[in-house]
């Protein structure tokens, strides 16, 4: 009896976990705003599915016990890489501006942006 209850509980937990990663319409809308993307209805559904799969995959990592391990942000054991404070770049404006779709008076031209 006791064992069965425990099994049921675990099953529920697994289901809850899978549900957890279902991406709601609000979430995909919000992510779209943050990423400055406009998605068609079809693209939205696909993105919701893809994101859920990604999150399910990441959840696998959470199964590991990482207590007491510092989060790693870099894979190489290298610290303190510096440059000295010496000007080494000249004026390369013409070349850089070639990368811009539009320029004016030595500046990058963008749609009007006011705060």
């Amino acid at each position: 009896m006791y064992i069965r209850e425990q099994e049921e509980q675990t099953l529920q937990e697994v289901e809850k976990k899978q549900d957890k990663n279902i991406i709601s319409d609000e979430t995909i809308e919000y992510v779209g705003i943050l990423a400055k993307l406009e998605l068609s209805g079809e693209e939205r559904e696909q993105a919701k599915k893809d994101m859920k799969e990604m999150l399910d995959y990441i959840d696998k990592l959470n199964e590991l016990d990482t207590a007491g391990i510092d989060p790693m942000s870099h894979i190489f054991p290298v610290n303190n890489v510096f440059r000295e404070d010496v000007v080494s770049n000249g004026d390369d404006r013409e070349n850089l501006l070639k990368n811009a779709p539009e320029t004016k008076d030595g500046s990058y031209l963008v749609p009007k942006t006011v705060e």
Binding site: D105, L109, P111
Partner: peptide, 13 residues
């Protein structure tokens, strides 16, 4: 950002 008084655009430095 410098806002162009005349056009509908901004200049970036």
């Amino acid at each position: 950002l410098i806002h162009d008084e005349w056009g509908d655009c901004s200049l970036v430095d």
